[in-house]
Design a protein around this nucleic acid. Structure first.
Lengths: 224, 224
DNA sequence: TGCTTTTTGATAGTATTACTATTATATTTG
DNA sequence: CAAATATAATAGTAATACTATCAAAAAGCA
């Protein structure tokens, strides 16, 4: 997938004006990624963002209704991008086990920059997803927002991986649980490894997160 | 453990004045649990809490420095309570496998009220832990707060379960990862089952969450 | 080129939040 | 009963998460 100019389409429900349609919009997105990473989501404001990009608050509001909608946009962008990574990784691979192994690696390995999408730094965005994405759905509005389709990118990805699992073992009862356990779990382990190391068994360069979850999945779907 | 007046001690670093030392303090804690559950953590304020308990904002601030510290207090209370549940459940049990199985059940089953602690409703508190607890450590201050010991109750619990795992298989490489994967994972599944069912395989009354994670753990620690 | 439409920028304003500070009034304790 | 302590009431502050308005700049196009 490297260096191919693939375009990631985001549902118009997630923005007021498409940030990909103007230079200002793209600067809003890429600078917001930097700033959320630097300041954390709570300390990040549209006012600060506006002044950093040499514009102002009201211009940002013309693209995104709220901070929260911007976060949802970023999350959906990230999962769409991951979906492409996944599609590319399993392309032309026959073996269902090999396909699943590649998928697990994508979710559990360190997130790397992908040159295909110039203005977005996926490594930084990955850190935001790890640290902030749960705040997007742990809200009193989840149900309403779920109906509006704000989480559909993630759900589609989970469905895709679940199908890979069923390809290997069609009688496995819990493919969705296993998939979300791996995706969310890997994020936790990455976060813990940096901030709460007592909660993990991370060791630099030993690929423990990938190894742990790969082993976990293949043992789980085995018919004893 | 039912109906025994066990006392849960919380580190004084987590409060300004011990809420367990006065009637007002206990009302602050138990009413805050109700209100966070009703309103969600972001919409919950000390002002609203003060007026609900027939007191006011400034009185609440005398017990807790901030909303965030109150959340940390609740989280530590919850994990201490879970630690008691765990100790009680494995007491007098010889078999390491049976002990671990009981532990997994405690983390994955539906949270139930425990009559031992009159003023706190553990079932509601459990919902708060599931929906809000990740907000406590996904902050720019994690490292500082970790040094101050604000997460030590949770870390101690994870350590305890990790030791149970190692009792069964001393050569298992990732006991902490496995433990946090189960605890955090089970919380996610409970949340998803209510709000994002496409992400899980929950079915009422079929005990899928307990079954899934029990199976996952025992297969994972097996030496193939 | 001029003219219109659209996009952006600047300023102002609002309600609410997350506090702090002060002081008066209860309540407890010695 | 006095002194100490706990609580309640009020006021105030800086910041946040927006909304509204309007002028200036840029883009589209005849």
């Amino acid at each position: 997938m490297r260096n191919l100019p693939i375009h990631i389409a985001i549902s118009p429900d997630l923005y007021t004006k498409n940030p990909d349609s103007s230079d200002l919009g793209r600067r809003i997105v890429c600078t917001s990624i930097e700033m959320i990473d630097e300041l954390g989501f709570e300390a990040f404001t549209f006012k600060k963002l506006g002044s950093r990009i040499g514009s102002n608050e009201s211009s940002v509001y013309r693209y995104f209704e709220s901070k929260h909608m911007l976060l949802l946009y970023l999350i959906n962008w990230y999962w769409s991008w991951t979906e492409y990574q996944l599609a590319f990784a399993v392309h032309n691979i026959e073996s269902p086990r090999e396909k699943l192994e590649k998928a697990i690696r994508i979710f559990t390995q360190k997130i790397d920059v992908d040159n295909s999408f110039s203005h977005i730094n996926e490594a930084i965005l990955g850190r935001i997803i790890i640290a902030e994405s749960s705040k997007a759905y742990h809200t009193k509005d989840v149900d309403k927002e779920n109906e509006k389709g704000f989480y559909k990118t993630y759900k589609r990805l989970v469905k895709r991986v679940s199908e890979m699992i069923l390809e290997i073992n069609p009688s496995f009862e819990f493919p969705h649980m296993l998939t979300t356990t791996v995706i969310e779990g890997a994020h936790h382990q990455r976060y813990f490894s940096e901030h709460l190391p007592a909660l993990t068994d991370f060791e630099e360069g030993k690929n423990n997160i990938v190894r742990f979850y790969t082993d976990l999945v293949f043992k789980a779907i085995e018919n004893r």
